[in-house]
Design a protein around this nucleic acid. Structure first.
Lengths: 205, 205
DNA sequence: TGGGTGACTAAAGGCCATAATAGTCACTCG
DNA sequence: CGAGTGACTATTATGGCCTTTAGTCACCCA
């Protein structure tokens, strides 16, 4: 086994190539407009003026293209979260903003770019690497915040760090994971604040 | 409007009637065996030796029968939870058992009576009264536990009771709600313990 | 009079032939 | 030799037709 078993589904060809970017760009627009299912690989080929076969020099499958788009979409959420966190001073505030931004960005994606949201949800449901990486990244940010809070004495230090982070991660999961968020839209407005309070109480020294 | 707008979808005829019970019993078996979709109202009629039309003297619709079964199924979960809670002494322990029993009973239903589980999940997704009542009942039990914990000084009393309960309810929701639980099966083993710890830390005086 | 039903309808669901699509490969041409 | 493709196949969607099913209603009969 010379290739990673379950990670990136292998995009072939040169990783950095003009045509590759064109494909991704076209896919971004088409998927967003017409959805993943309704967009054919031929559509993308036509859009960039090449044949369908050529697309497969760069991507292993249509799904691999979907994942690229999905990764891009989720990256945008992460970026929004990072920005929000950077704008806060205390770990407490960072956590609040993280949670709030995560949910509001997700909800906004749901209502404003539903087609892309659906890809993200599907990706989460199928455990695509893009979705896994996203969850992992969120967890990293969370870990950093908790660690900082512990160092500054703002958060308790008795519970093992991993356990604390994991539990908080479980609390956020229904709002982080696009697959789950869509079932929690009715409480998405209030949940971040309510749950932040609860979590922060649990973190009190 | 002489009837309740969104609550019980009206079962007609005498509420207490032998035939009604027969219908429910037959439905329980058929739905569990073949599923809600694959069971026809005629099947149920045949099973109890009456005509299909007669069934509609007792139930407004096939869905109403589904709801009766769903309510029964969810009641069993509630009963298991109540029993588990009754067997504990401290509010802390009651909460732990409540959460754990809730999840394990739900998971067990998923694996051992999938067809009934699917009805419950559907019911939760559609907001049927049976599912609503179930969630409401769980919340009541939770409220009772928190209140008791506060009175005994085991839990903090600063946060408004409603707020505390509501936040904990949000934490449990992904495992209480059958529609959501099915997406969280992979963590259903560990989640109750981890989240109970977190919640109880947040409840510390 | 009230427990019980056959016959009916509109709508939903299954079925199957056909069309569309993902993905491959041998090939071209500069 | 490498950027790029037409033509091909196996699989999956689609759409129209026909069957099944939920639900009603006028009616029966003890």
């Amino acid at each position: 086994m010379s290739q990673t078993p379950s990670s990136v589904p292998a995009s072939r060809g040169p990783a950095d190539h003009n045509v590759r970017d064109q494909i991704v760009e076209a896919a971004g627009e088409h998927f967003s407009h017409y959805g993943y299912e309704k967009t054919t690989v031929s559509d993308l080929a036509k859009a960039i003026g090449f044949s369908k076969a050529y697309i497969y020099k760069f991507f292993d499958s249509k799904q691999a293209i979907g994942e690229a788009i999905c990764a891009k979409t989720l990256s945008a959420i992460v970026a929004a979260v990072e920005e929000a966190v950077a704008g806060a001073t205390t770990p407490t505030e960072k956590f609040r903003r993280m949670f709030k931004t995560l949910v509001s960005t997700g909800v906004s994606l749901f209502f404003n770019d539903r087609k892309l949201y659906d890809i993200a949800a599907y990706s989460a449901g199928e455990g695509w690497p893009s979705a896994r990486a996203y969850c992992e990244r969120i967890r990293q940010i969370l870990t950093e915040i908790v660690r900082e809070g512990r160092e500054s004495g703002e958060f308790e230090r008795k519970t093992p760090l991993d356990e604390t982070v994991h539990a908080i991660d479980l609390v956020m999961q229904p709002y982080v994971n696009p697959l789950l968020l869509q079932y929690n839209l009715d409480v998405a407005e209030e949940a971040p604040a309510q749950l932040s309070n609860l979590v922060l109480r649990s973190l009190a020294p």
